[in-house]
Design a protein around this nucleic acid. Structure first.
Length: 401
DNA sequence: TCTGGGGTCCTTAATCTA
DNA sequence: TCTGTAGATTAAGGACCC
């Protein structure tokens, strides 16, 4: 798989260091020299969302149960996240990045890809561009970011991780293979606990060892898609496309109870609140979804989802609640105390303007025209029945996903 | 250890449809 | 009209990411 373009690109990846914890530290100078843990409060259900580097010195990591974090460092400052504040700061950062290049793709609240191709004429070599990114973020928000720059997204991302915290690393195209070779396979995208287990079983620890494994063998162990992805990554092959403003695909809200709940009135009330929040977000973004998903986690962490496609897309909390509750009552879920309940919507109604755009493009229109002509010709030869089938398939291919 | 919340993408199986 | 079939769609679960 070679990228479709041959033009040399410079892709940047900017990543804020211990984002939530850094924002809190910035806003409360008295935390300056302390371990800061943002997440659940000790004594409650929950995990660490972010820990600053002082806290990490005690072995505290993201996603660690808060009880474990407390055991490791009872003296740390424990704070609940203030999402609204972090979103504000995040928007400031993306705005700042937008002053460097219009091609900024936010990937989460605290990181973004940037297409830096062509900026060399204005700002100098990639290293200087990286310094400029860091400087602007710091001057704008008082926060430190790690920046990685490379010929594609994968290398940029790994380079920014490599330098953390407050790092800056540029990997030139001819350095890519050597940069990747000694890395643990776990640093590749998509390698979590399960995949790591498989790699361990196969005796693969580093990227260079992964490169030596025949593709067919990898496919047998991991499936075709994953094998191809890891093979490509091991060779430093990845997309260099930076797509500003990728739309979201779903909106959901969920909550974990402090104690497991059996009472259906309580579950229904909580679900109503969650449905209202989902609906409000959807209305705020002018989205209507035609799939409603209910998520339930029972005692013992047993998790189920149930979904239903509704005929008319909605952002109405009454409809979302009604559908979610119907899924709950459907009778195919265990009757056990509930630990978590959540609801979401997805599968947006096709926006009219988008559909027009698609068929307005000359190539699409020409293809559509050819399709119709083919159908007409075939209609003469075979009659109508087969044709509807063929037409439908073709149209499906043309539809955006 | 005892596991949040909000997402994306992938795989697999069941079901629908022509 | 019946039957088998391929491909599309839907549903559920799991892995992963931040």
């Amino acid at each position: 798989m070679t990228p479709p373009h041959t033009k040399k690109r410079w892709i940047g990846h900017a990543d804020l260091d211990a984002f939530y914890a850094s924002v809190e530290q910035r806003d409360c100078p008295e935390y300056r020299d302390q371990a800061v843990v943002v997440g659940a409060l000790p004594g409650h259900r929950g995990v660490v969302a972010a820990a600053n580097y002082q806290a990490r010195a005690f072995g505290i990591r993201s996603a660690m149960p808060i009880a474990e974090a407390y055991r490791r460092c009872p003296d740390a400052v424990y704070l609940r996240p203030e999402m609204a504040k972090y979103i504000r700061v995040s928007q400031e950062i993306f705005q700042t990045l937008g002053t460097l290049t219009p091609v900024v793709e936010p990937v989460s609240i605290d990181e973004a890809y940037l297409d830096l191709t062509g900026l060399e004429r204005l700002l100098g070599p990639p290293k200087d561009i990286g310094r400029e990114i860091k400087r602007r973020i710091f001057e704008g928000t008082g926060l430190r970011a790690s920046v990685g720059i490379g010929p594609n997204r994968l290398i940029a991302k790994l380079a920014s991780e490599h330098g953390k915290p407050d790092g800056l690393m540029v990997v030139h195209p001819d350095e890519v293979l050597d940069f990747l070779a000694p890395m643990p396979v776990a640093t590749l995208r998509g390698v979590g606990r399960q995949t790591q287990k498989i790699f361990s079983r196969l005796g693969i620890e580093t990227v260079s060892q992964l490169r030596a494994i025949p593709l067919q063998y990898l496919e047998e162990q991991l499936g075709k898609k994953a094998a191809a992805s890891f093979r490509d990554q091991a060779l430093g092959i990845a997309s260099a496309e930076v797509v500003p403003g990728r739309g979201r695909k779903s909106i959901s809200k969920e909550t974990t109870f402090e104690e497991d709940v059996r009472n259906q009135d309580i579950l229904h009330d909580v679900l109503r609140g969650l449905a209202a929040e989902v609906a409000a977000t959807a209305r705020g973004e002018n989205l209507s979804g035609s799939v409603v998903t209910l998520k339930i986690r029972f005692v013992g962490f047993e998790t189920h989802t149930r979904q239903r496609t509704i005929p008319v897309p909605t952002h109405d909390e009454r409809v979302i609640l009604r559908e979610a509750w119907a899924l709950f009552l459907r009778g195919d879920l265990p009757r056990k105390p509930v630990r978590l309940i959540g609801v979401g919507i997805s599968a947006w109604q096709q926006a009219e303007s988008q559909q027009v755009d698609l068929f307005d493009q000359p190539r699409e229109r020409a293809r559509d025209q050819r399709l119709l002509e083919t159908i007409d010709r075939a209609a003469d030869r075979f009659g109508k029945g087969i044709l509807q089938l063929g037409y439908k398939r073709k149209i499906n291919e043309n539809e955006p996903r």
